[in-house]
Amino acid sequence: AKGLVFEMVEKHPLQNRWALWFFKNDKSKTWQANLHLITKFDTVEDFWGLYHHIQPASKLTPGCDYSLFKDGIEPMWEDDQNKRGGRWLVTLAKQQRHTDLDHFWLETLLCLIGESFERFGGDICGAVLNVRAKGDKIAVWTCEADNRDGVTHIGRVYKERLGLTQKVTIGYQAHTDTASKSHNLTKNKFVV
């Protein structure tokens, strides 16, 4: 044998370090006590290592959430980086848990870590997955609801990446509106 050639396997750095959070609904605890940081990563390879290690979205118990946020931003409205912002919200019908949820969530994660929103990537705070009996939700959170150019660019790119047809619309809601009204009354600030 001529001996083995060892290759240095370099990892591919991401633009941002990301934190994955898990929320498990336990009514005996406060909302914040139910929120757990799983881990942080800042390379493509570490992302996949994590992704393959955790439950797929469709296998989570209803009431659970995953959140992926930039390091330093907590997955809640109250965070300074989120409080003036809002979210592009994708609501799924019950049956889509088995057909679309895992695909949509992975696509959302890839948009974030790959910086698909280009020059408006700085507007991105994170993304949230809610697994719920009445229908699952995925949302991309941005930092400034009044930044029309950034918000609409992100919405268009995101909708295209999910492969949604023109017949489907998704709406952007400011967190201040979501917090002050019951959810089904929250008006969309933008629609794509």
Partner: peptide, 18 residues
């Protein structure tokens, strides 16, 4: 500065690497 951008195809190829 420059932003490190990875397209979907590249990220998926990394998934399949050993």
């Amino acid at each position: 500065g420059t932003r490190i951008i990875y397209d979907r195809k590249f990220l998926m190829e990394c998934r399949n690497s050993p």
